[in-house]
Design a protein around this nucleic acid. Sequence first.
DNA 1: CGCCTTTTCTTGACTCCTTCAAGAAAAGGC
DNA 2: GCCTTTTCTTGAAGGAGTCAAGAAAAGGCG
Lengths: 161, 161
Amino acid sequence: MTTEAADLDAPGVPGAAGTAGVDLPQLLRAATLRVTRPRVAVLGAVHAHPHADTETIIGAVRTELPAVSHQAVYDSLHALTGAGLLRRIQPAGSVARYETRIADNHHHLVCRSCGAVVDVDCAIGQAPCLTASDDHGFVIDEAEVTYWGTCPACTAAAHGA
Amino acid sequence: MTTEAADLDAPGVPGAAGTAGVDLPQLLRAATLRVTRPRVAVLGAVHAHPHADTETIIGAVRTELPAVSHQAVYDSLHALTGAGLLRRIQPAGSVARYETRIADNHHHLVCRSCGAVVDVDCAIGQAPCLTASDDHGFVIDEAEVTYWGTCPACTAAAHGA
DNA sequence: CGCCTTTTCTTGACTCCTTCAAGAAAAGGC
DNA sequence: GCCTTTTCTTGAAGGAGTCAAGAAAAGGCG
């Protein structure tokens, strides 16, 4: 299996397309996670499709590994999320989505009409958004901001109708 | 049906227990919604159980109206939400929850461990939280802030273990 | 007060996302 | 190269929420 192991490491391999310059196996090793083809493909798919839902990720992974089960994708997403390599977001009324921008305190802008998600940098540095007016005794570790609205395409469509 | 209609209007009636002083039928009429017992009961249940999930609401409603179907509760929740009498929230990983505090720009503090939800007034007035650093062309109508952490009870349980 | 139209509720089935479980396969260390 | 641990495959199940058709109730009007 030496050949296959080499494939997993080699940058620029077909399976790593769309993640130019990012050494995915190294990311996995740095997180003390075993390097498997499903995990590399899942990580690459999320890098290539930010904010994608699980179905989209499964589809992207299967362009590289047609035989991967949906369960392997779910397991990989959980493992990667638990290790901090991915972040899971889930706007109300939506299925789970994943992204690779982590640890930079950015927020999300969601279209009520089509569900599109885009990143927004924190409006006011860091501190204000992360401080609640009254913590009710909770130990707060994150402040998540979701902006709701209508995206340009849906706004145009509504005006046209 | 005069007697029953009177029951719906009468304040202090058994069915209105737990909503002291709030004229629920009047709220419904003000929103141009028909006054039905399931709707009054649902509205009362959410008043009595802030942040309750649908299952809890169904249970509360059935203490007054044992025969109400879950579908009637779902329909009522949708109608009341659409009319602006209720607000639906759904923290990631949780089922839908409903509350009666509306139109006052408050936010939520959610326990990662037990899922408890408490209200938090907007930390910094209104404007800053409602303004994204870059709107990407979206028409933004709401900024929702969710603080994540651990509630006092779960913190104590973790330290004790 | 009673009829009629519109809206809402009941019943029952169904979809979708996600998780559970058991055994086969692969990764990584010695 | 072998062994242990972890991960993947296969197949099924769980639960929140939705859909559809007909019965029932609310509200307006005469």
